[in-house]
Design a protein around this nucleic acid. Structure first.
Lengths: 256, 256
DNA sequence: CATTGTGAAGTGATTCACAGCA
DNA sequence: TGCTGTGAATCACTTCACAATG
C-alpha cells in the first residue's frame, strides 16, 4: 500500500535536528525503566500519524499538529514523547521521519516478529489475510486449526497445519506472538500449549479469560464487550432524553 | 451456544435475597450518575462470568469466586458492583442469576440493539457471521458495501446493500450502533454518513482516527496496535535477557 | 518568539483494611 | 462467623502552566 519506507528514510537521519550525542545515553536509560502503559498503548497511534504525515511529505510537525492527527491533546503527546527521550526542537517541533524511526525502534518494529494464528474460522481467515500484519513487520509464520478437515487447506500463501505440529513449527522459527481465534471453549487449552511452546505474548480474540504465567503478556480483543460498552452509553443517552420528555419507559427496567 | 436463559431466569427473582424495596430507589440514583468508565468496561466480563457460572448451575458466588472467573481481584469486583447497587448478601455472596440480570439491565441488554456493518471485506464477513452478535441481543440490521460488484451478494441471512441505501435503512429500523470495517481511507466518510443518519455509537475496526461530534461514542478495535503493544513488551523481555547475558545486540538500535 | 519538556496540581482508578451485617 | 460494602490511602494517568531554549 505505497507505504513510506520506514527504516531507510529515518535511519540515515534526516534534514532536521537529531539530538546531540551526549543526550542519547540518558534517553536509553529513561526508556529502559518505565514508560507508562498508557503511553505505550498510544505509541502505535503516533507512529501511524507520523507515517501518514511522512506520506504527505511533511518534514516537521509541532506537538499540536501531531496530536491533532493522533486524536489526543498536545500536552499528553508531549508528555508521552518525553518518556522516550528529547526528540523535539523547541520553537520548531519534531522531525517527522526521525521521530517516526525513534518510535518504531522503541516499539520494536525495527525487527520482524513471527506470529502464529490458531483457529482458522471466519475470524482466523480474516486475520490471515489482513494486510496490516505484514506491513508493520509481523509475519504470519503458521496457521493452525484443530479440525482435521481443515488441515492442508490453503489460505493465502500458507497451508493450515494441525495442532500437533505446533511444537515443531514453533521450534523451527522462533515465534514470540500467538493469536488465538478459536471458540471460547478451546482458548485456554490453546493458550497453555502456546505458552508451553515458548510463546511470550498472546493476542486473544476468544471471549474467554485466559490464565497465564507472569512472564506472558496477554491482550484481548473482544467484539462483544465493545458492543456492550457502547450499548451501555447508548442506553444512558436514551434515558436522558426520556427523562427530559418525562417518558415513563425509563422505569420499565427498574420496576422489577 | 445452549445459553442459559438470561431474562426469564432472573426476571422472576430467584431463591436468594433480593434487595428490599426501600433500597431500590437509591440504586437507580447511584447508577444514573456516574459509574466509572473502567467499571463499565468490566461489566460485560462479569456478565460473562456469571453466565458461565449459571450454566454450571451455580446459584451463589462470593466476590472471590466471581473475581476468579472474571480475572480480576475481589476488591475491585466488589467496588465495581457497589456502583450499581447493593446486590450481595454479607456472609453469603451474590445470587448468580439475580446479579446477572441486574448487570444485563444496567448494560442495556434487556433490549435489542440493531447494528449496521459497513465494509464487507474479509473482516466484515467474519463480523457478519459472528454468532456472538445475536446471542447478546445485537441484531445485524444491514450489511453495506461501497463496491457495486458486491451489492446484492448474500452473507448469511442478509444481502449486501449499497451505501446509497444507508439513510433509507437507518430510517426504517432505528439503528443505534454502526460498525466500520472499511479500509482506513473510507472510514471517516462512512463515519460521517452514519452520524448524519443518526447513529449514536460507532465501533471502528479501521486503522484510522475518527472525528465525531460530542454526542457520538466511538470505540476502536485495532489489531495492528495490539500487536505493536505486545511487540513492545516482548522486545523489553528480550532486552532484559540480553543485558543479563551481556549480549551486545541490545545497543544495535540505539547506536544510531 | 514559538514550541518543547516538565514540575506541580488535579483527576480517576485501584487497593487496602475493616466496620457492618446476615 | 464469613463476606460484603466502602471510606481512606495509594497509585497511575492527565492536564495545567510556564521556565527553558533553539
Amino acid at each position: 500500500m505505497a507505504e513510506a519506507p520506514l527504516l531507510q528514510a529515518a535511519r540515515q537521519g534526516s534534514t532536521v535536528t537529531a539530538p546531540r550525542g551526549n543526550r542519547s545515553r540518558s534517553h536509553v536509560e529513561r526508556a529502559e525503566r518505565g514508560v507508562p502503559e498508557a503511553t505505550v498503548a498510544r505509541l502505535p497511534i503516533y507512529l501511524r500519524a507520523l507515517t501518514s504525515l511522512a506520506e504527505g511529505d511533511v518534514l516537521t510537525a509541532s506537538s499540536e499538529d501531531l496530536a491533532g492527527a493522533a486524536g489526543v491533546n498536545s500536552a499528553k503527546l508531549r508528555k508521552d514523547l518525553s518518556y522516550l527521550g528529547t526528540y523535539g526542537t523547541r520553537g520548531v517541533g519534531y522531525d517527522v521521519n526521525y521521530l517516526r524511526y525513534q518510535i518504531a525502534r522503541q516499539i520494536g518494529l525495527t525487527q520482524d516478529w513471527s506470529v502464529v494464528i490458531v483457529g482458522i474460522g471466519n475470524l482466523g481467515h480474516a486475520l490471515a489475510n489482513y494486510s496490516g500484519f505484514a506491513s508493520r513487520g509481523f509475519q504470519v509464520a503458521a496457521l493452525i486449526d484443530s479440525d482435521p478437515a481443515r488441515v492442508g487447506e490453503r489460505v493465502g500463501d500458507l497451508v493450515i497445519s494441525s495442532m500437533d505440529d505446533l511444537d515443531e513449527i514453533l521450534s523451527r522459527s522462533s515465534v514470540a506472538i500467538g493469536v488465538i481465534a478459536t471458540p471460547a471453549g478451546a482458548a485456554q487449552d490453546v493458550c497453555d500449549r502456546l505458552v508451553a511452546a515458548g510463546v511470550g505474548s498472546i493476542l486473544n480474540f476468544a471471549p474467554a479469560v485466559l490464565t497465564v504465567p507472569d512472564h506472558v503478556d496477554v491482550r484481548k480483543v473482544d467484539l462483544s464487550i465493545e458492543l456492550q460498552i457502547l450499548a451501555y452509553h447508548e442506553q444512558r443517552k436514551a434515558h436522558g432524553l426520556a427523562l427530559l420528555r418525562g417518558d415513563p419507559v425509563v422505569r420499565a427496567g427498574a420496576a422489577l
